[in-house]
């Protein structure tokens, strides 16, 4: 595990997909007019015979991908998360999820990482996809996870929704990180508060845990890249050993990781104070930068610290998150 500020890399997904496709002839790449933005300009240039410009027509793109999967192809479908989920939802239900076909929906620019306003901010994509039977739902945190998850999902027999950060991708994990579709990753253990997180909030959760430990709080951090099917055993085991639970996700607190953990705790009969960090049932807004929105809508390291403090019934002043200065090409959580 590396320390912030994290180095970043460009297009780890695009490279991983080309690598995969060189080894597997069944892989085809569909793009909805966001080819460079979804890193598949690499695929278009390297393997043009298996690249499909679907144009700005997401409904049709999903329907075609479903038929291609019926024919034995392994379609990877690319657009922004909003256009990959909320726009063609009925098509995903009928052409992909219900027939349980191996279509991989790759939705870039998750949550409020986009300053482009509610039309471009996928704040409920996980909730929508999680509600669909057969669908596997994934939100990975860094380049190492991305590189590994691509061949893993290519082997999965059913449909997958993979949510990916756009642009500079931090390298948080060392090369020995092994991503699993079945198991969440217990990064650290601690018997006071357990933080469950994934995707872009992982680095913030790690920073929050570090600050909390500085005040003597015993913190467990669990990275949950696969939101569905959820690794219920790990969630229950870690939560059982803690007094309080915090979830942190770049998504609405309704229907995503926080909801999945809440359902799991309740069904296990495990009474733990739970605080969910995420968008609190609100649309965000357009802005100049994503970090501004993370501050404004409560998705920062400090918000996780405050949530843990509150969940532990602490009445004294919570510690302040440490600022991590970043140079160009580096990444640190807000």
């Amino acid at each position: 595990m590396r320390e912030p500020p994290y180095q970043t890399v460009q297009k780890p997904y695009g490279r991983a997909l080309v690598e995969l496709a060189r080894q597997r002839e069944d892989v085809v790449c569909l793009s909805g007019d966001l080819t460079r933005q979804c890193e598949v300009d690499l695929f278009r240039d390297e393997l043009p015979d298996r690249f499909v410009h679907a144009g700005m027509a997401e409904a049709n793109m999903i329907g075609m991908a479903g038929a291609m999967a019926r024919e034995g192809l392994n379609p990877f479908v690319h657009t922004f998360g909003v256009f990959a989920t909320r726009r063609p939802l009925d098509q995903i239900v009928n052409a992909v999820a219900y027939p349980n076909l191996p279509v991989r929906l790759i939705g870039f620019m998750p949550g409020i990482s986009s300053p482009g306003g509610p039309s471009h901010q996928a704040i409920e994509d996980i909730a929508l996809m999680r509600a669909l039977p057969n669908m596997t739902v994934i939100d990975v945190a860094d380049a190492a996870e991305i590189t590994q998850i691509v061949p893993l999902i290519a082997d999965h027999p059913g449909p997958v929704y993979l949510r990916l950060k756009r642009g500079e991708i931090p390298v948080i994990f060392d090369e020995d990180r092994r991503v699993s579709l079945e198991q969440a990753q217990v990064i650290s253990t601690g018997d006071e508060v357990a933080i469950f997180t994934n995707g872009m909030m992982l680095s913030a959760a790690l920073a929050a845990a570090s600050t909390l430990r500085g005040r003597g709080v015993r913190v467990a951090v669990v990275n949950v890249p696969v939101i569905k099917p959820l690794d219920v055993d790990t969630v229950v085991r870690v939560a059982r050993s803690a007094r309080a639970v915090v979830t942190a996700e770049n998504h609405s607190i309704i229907g995503g990781l926080g909801s999945a953990v809440a359902e799991t705790l309740a069904e296990a009969g495990l009474g733990r104070t739970l605080r969910r960090v995420g968008l609190r049932d609100t649309f965000a807004e357009g802005a100049l930068s994503g970090p501004y929105l993370f501050e404004r809508y409560g998705l920062t390291t400090q918000h996780i610290i405050d949530a843990a403090w509150n969940a532990l019934d602490r009445t004294d002043e919570p510690p302040a998150a440490a600022a991590t200065p970043v140079e160009a090409g580096e990444y640190a959580p807000v």
Binding site: A59, N60, R70, Q91, P99
Partner: peptide
């Protein structure tokens, strides 16, 4: 539905079939 015999694809939610047909035909091209 998916269980229906006698067809390669059918769609209870209307107007999705042509996309499926296009997907079949384009697979043949690929």
């Amino acid at each position: 539905t998916e269980r229906s015999p006698a067809v390669d694809l059918t769609c209870g939610s209307l107007a999705q079939g042509l996309s499926g047909g296009v997907g079949f035909a384009y697979t043949d091209r690929l």
